[in-house]
C-alpha cells in the first residue's frame, strides 16, 4: 500500500471523460513520474489529488495513509502534507518573493527563505524584495514557486511540468530541488512529458486515455513512451487502433 492511493477515479469535464476508472498509488519517499502525451489526464489527476476547485466532483476515492481525503478541500489537504506546483504559476501583484515563500513555511525566518531560494539557484539579495508578478519571467516564477514548496517541508509534492519555461542552465537547479525534497523524505510526483524530467524519477506511470496504461521501471516506461507514445498518431484514442488498456 502506498502513502497515497487514487482508486477508480473517473472525472468528466464539460461532457468529456478526462479520467477513466484510474487506479494509481505512490510509495512513500520515492520520486514518481506520471508521463504521457498532452491530453491524457496527467494535470487533471494532479488537480484531483490536490483537491482544486472544479476537480472535486469525481467518482472513486483518494486515500492518504489509508484514510479518505475525498471530502477535504485544498487547504485541508495541504494541512495533511500535500502540496503542488502549477505548470504555469500564478502571478501575485505586489506580493514579494519573501512574503510568498514565508506564507506557508513553518519556519518563517529569513534564513529559511534565503536557503530555499539558494536551493533553486536564485540569489536571495536579488529576488527577496521583488514581487511575484509579471516582472518575473515564467521560469523565475517557476523557481520561486519551487522555493516556496521547499520552505514548507511537505510530505507529498506534485510538480506539474517542472521544466516548462525553464532554461537549460536552470534545469539542474530544478533537479537539485527534487533531490532536496527526496532527501527530506518527501514523496515527489512529477507530471511530465519530458524525458529529461522522467530520468529524475525512480518509478513511473504511463497514462493514456485517462487511465494508467503501464507502470514500473523508469527505463522501461521511457522506452515504451519513446517508441510507442511519441510517434502515436491516435493520441488519447487507443480504441481506434485496437490498443487494449
Amino acid at each position: 500500500m502506498g502513502i497515497l492511493e487514487a482508486k477508480n477515479i473517473s472525472l468528466s469535464i464539460n461532457g468529456n471523460k478526462i479520467l477513466d476508472n484510474l487506479d494509481i498509488d505512490f510509495w512513500e519517499g520515492y520520486v514518481h513520474a506520471i508521463v504521457g502525451p498532452n491530453g491524457v489526464g496527467k494535470t487533471t489527476l494532479g488537480n484531483v489529488i490536490m483537491g482544486l476547485e472544479g476537480y472535486r466532483d469525481f467518482e472513486g476515492d483518494i486515500l492518504l495513509n489509508g484514510k479518505s481525503i475525498k471530502k477535504l478541500n485544498v487547504y485541508e489537504r495541504a494541512k495533511s502534507g500535500i502540496t503542488m506546483a502549477w505548470q504555469e504559476p500564478a502571478r501575485f501583484e505586489g506580493l514579494t518573493v519573501e512574503k510568498f515563500i514565508k506564507a506557508g513555511a513553518k519556519d518563517k525566518s529569513i534564513e529559511k527563505v534565503k536557503d530555499a531560494l539558494k536551493k533553486v539557484g536564485m540569489a536571495p539579495e536579488v529576488y527577496m524584495g521583488r514581487a511575484v508578478d509579471k516582472s518575473l519571467s515564467g521560469g523565475e516564477r517557476k523557481k520561486v514557486e519551487l522555493a516556496s514548496i521547499l520552505a514548507i517541508d511537505p510530505k507529498i509534492v506534485i510538480l506539474d511540468e517542472p521544466d516548462s519555461g525553464i532554461d537549460v542552465a536552470s534545469l539542474e537547479n530544478i533537479f537539485n530541488a527534487i533531490r532536496f525534497l527526496k532527501e527530506n523524505g518527501a514523496t515527489v510526483i512529477l507530471i511530465t512529458h519530458s524525458l529529461e524530467v522522467l530520468k529524475q524519477s525512480e518509478h513511473a506511470f504511463l497514462l493514456c486515455c485517462g487511465t494508467v496504461l503501464r507502470r514500473g521501471n523508469v527505463e522501461e516506461i521511457r522506452q515504451y513512451f519513446e517508441d510507442k507514445c511519441i510517434p502515436c498518431d491516435h493520441k488519447n484514442k487507443p480504441e481506434q487502433n485496437g490498443v487494449k488498456l
Binding site: M50, L52, E53, N73, V74, Y75, R77, A78, K79, I82, T83, M84, W86, P89, A90, R91, F92, E93, G94, L95, T96, K99, A103, G104, A131, E145, S148, I149, I152
Partner: peptide
C-alpha cells in the same frame, strides 16, 4: 480574488481567509 492565486496559497496551507488577506495586502502594497 483570482482563483488560481487563492488555490496556490491554500495549497501551501493557508486558510481561505488568510490567503485572501495576503493577496489583498500584496495588491495594495
Amino acid at each position: 480574488v483570482d482563483s488560481k492565486q487563492l488555490q496556490t496559497l491554500m495549497s501551501r496551507g493557508l486558510s481561505e481567509d488568510k490567503a485572501v488577506e495576503l493577496i489583498i495586502d500584496g495588491l495594495l502594497s
